[in-house]
Nucleic acid binder design. Structure first.
Lengths: 120, 120
DNA sequence: CGTCTCCTTCGACGACTCTCGTACCATGGG
DNA sequence: CCCATGGTACGAGAGTCGTCGAAGGAGACG
C-alpha cells in the first residue's frame, strides 16, 4: 500500500549511507552485540530463530531492524524465515579494521566477565 | 561535605570496570565523538574550554561526564580548569586496536561527509 | 483448506538521553 | 575583598530507546 513494502523486500542503507555513529550505537546494546558476535562466529547466514535471546520476539524484531538500518547486517527472506548476515565487506571498506576490533573486544570482554562471574 | 566531593577528585572507573558497550555508547554521540577525535589529535591534555562545541556549557559538562564514566577519558582539575586526556593505555590493554580503528573510522567518515557536503 | 511456524506491526509503558537555563561553587587575579 | 573565569548541580522538557503483549500476515505442509 504505502511505500513501505512489508512483504518482500527489506530496506537497507547503501554503503555510503552507513554512519559510524549509527554503527556504534547499534553495537552498544548487549543484545545486538551478542547477535553480531554470534553472526561473526558462524560461517554464513543465520535465521532469526537461531538466536537464543533473553527478549521476546517483537523485541528481537526491533533489534534486527536496528542492525539492518544501521548497516551492520543484511537481511533477506527465505520462505518463512529471515536470514541474517554481517555486512563485513561494506563495513571493512568504510571503516577498515573497525568490525574486527569490536568483535575481538566483545569476545575478550565476554570471556573476561565470564571469568569474573564464575570466579575461575 | 558529602562523599561526593565536588572540588578535588573525580570518580573514574577502574580499567577492569570499563565495559565495551559503555565505550561504544559514549562514542556513538557526534558531540562526544568530536571531543575524542580532538583529544586524540592533540599531544596531551586539553581543557574543557578548549573545545568549540555546538552546545551549552552544562551540556558539555554532561558529555564529559559520560566520557569519563564510561572510561574513555581521564579528567583532573588544574586550578579552575579541568584537563582531559584519552585513556589510551587502558583502552588498548582491554580492547586492542579498538580506539585506533574508531578514531580512523571517525576521521574517514568526517572527511567523507565533508567531501559530500561541499561537493568537492 | 486448516494449521503451524516465523516474523511483523501496533500501541503502550518506563527508562534513559540530550538539551537547556538558572543558580551556584572554587580558584585565581586585581 | 571583590569579581571574573571555568566548571557544576539541579530541575525540566522533548525525544529516543528497549521492552512487552496482543493481533495479524506470509509461507510451508498436511
Amino acid at each position: 500500500m504505502t511505500d513501505r513494502d512489508t512483504s518482500r523486500t527489506l530496506a537497507h542503507p547503501e554503503a555510503a549511507e552507513i554512519r559510524l555513529e549509527g554503527v556504534l550505537h547499534a553495537l552498544s546494546d548487549p543484545v545486538r552485540l551478542s547477535i553480531v558476535l554470534d553472526l561473526a562466529g558462524s560461517a554464513d547466514d543465520l535465521a532469526c530463530s537461531h538466536f537464543d535471546l533473553p527478549v521476546t520476539k517483537s523485541t528481537t524484531t526491533h533489534h534486527f531492524r536496528v542492525l539492518r538500518e544501521s548497516g551492520v547486517v543484511r537481511q533477506a527472506y527465505r520462505g518463512t524465515t529471515k536470514l541474517n548476515a554481517l555486512r563485513r565487506d561494506d563495513l571493512e571498506a568504510l571503516f577498515p579494521g573497525l568490525l574486527d576490533s569490536i568483535l575481538t573486544a566483545a569476545a575478550a570482554e565476554s570471556s573476561r566477565l565470564t571469568r569474573v562471574t564464575t570466579g575461575a
